[in-house]
């Protein structure tokens, strides 16, 4: 399917741009706003920011019908077939991984998408976070492959 590589490349660039614009428009590119949602302790004082729930709601409202209909096509536009996750089991990794991820998310207010958009701000701190994140990813891949 290498004849589709150019199309797939452009498609990924466009999807990345749209995803990133969505993060900026929604406010989720701002780690302070993400922590504003995660701070349930601020509810009594009226300082809680429920915006993140609206981001998820907007994304799922669009995603739900699409993920129901599109995989029924014979094939995607620029690839031979759909490659969607098939696992349904609940193992220890699906509990441990998100626990670790959630702690890091709560410490910095950054998950992988907003970490990459933060690079556009040009700060060394954002770059440091992304490099540490990539190191963590490589470490997990290495451990999983052993």
């Amino acid at each position: 399917m290498s004849e589709n590589l150019f199309s797939r490349s452009l498609l990924h660039l466009a999807a990345g741009l749209l995803f990133g614009l969505g993060l900026v428009v929604s406010g989720m590119a701002d780690p302070g706003k993400v922590l504003g949602f995660l701070d349930l302790g601020a509810i009594p004082s009226g300082g809680w920011d429920p915006s993140l729930a609206f981001v998820m709601g907007g994304a799922i409202a669009v995603g739900l019908p699409g993920f129901r209909l599109i995989p029924r096509w014979n094939r995607p536009w620029f690839a031979a077939k759909f490659e969607l996750p098939t696992r349904r089991d609940i193992d220890s990794r699906i509990l441990l991984g998100p626990s670790i991820f959630g702690v890091g998310w709560g410490l910095a207010g950054l998950c992988p998408g907003p970490a990459f958009t933060a690079l556009a701000g040009g700060s060394g701190a954002a770059l440091g976070f992304v490099l540490a994140m990539l190191l963590g990813m490589a470490l997990a891949r290495w451990l999983a492959a052993r």
Binding site: G22, S26, W77
Partner: peptide, 29 residues
């Protein structure tokens, strides 16, 4: 609640969902 942005967050979320569908429709991923 002074920072609560329901409309722009909903709109940005819809853009994120649309980006996910673009990747699904084009690359099957």
């Amino acid at each position: 609640m002074d920072h609560f942005t329901p409309l722009s967050s909903l709109l940005g979320g819809a853009m994120i969902g649309a980006a996910a569908l673009l990747l699904l429709a084009g690359a099957g991923r």
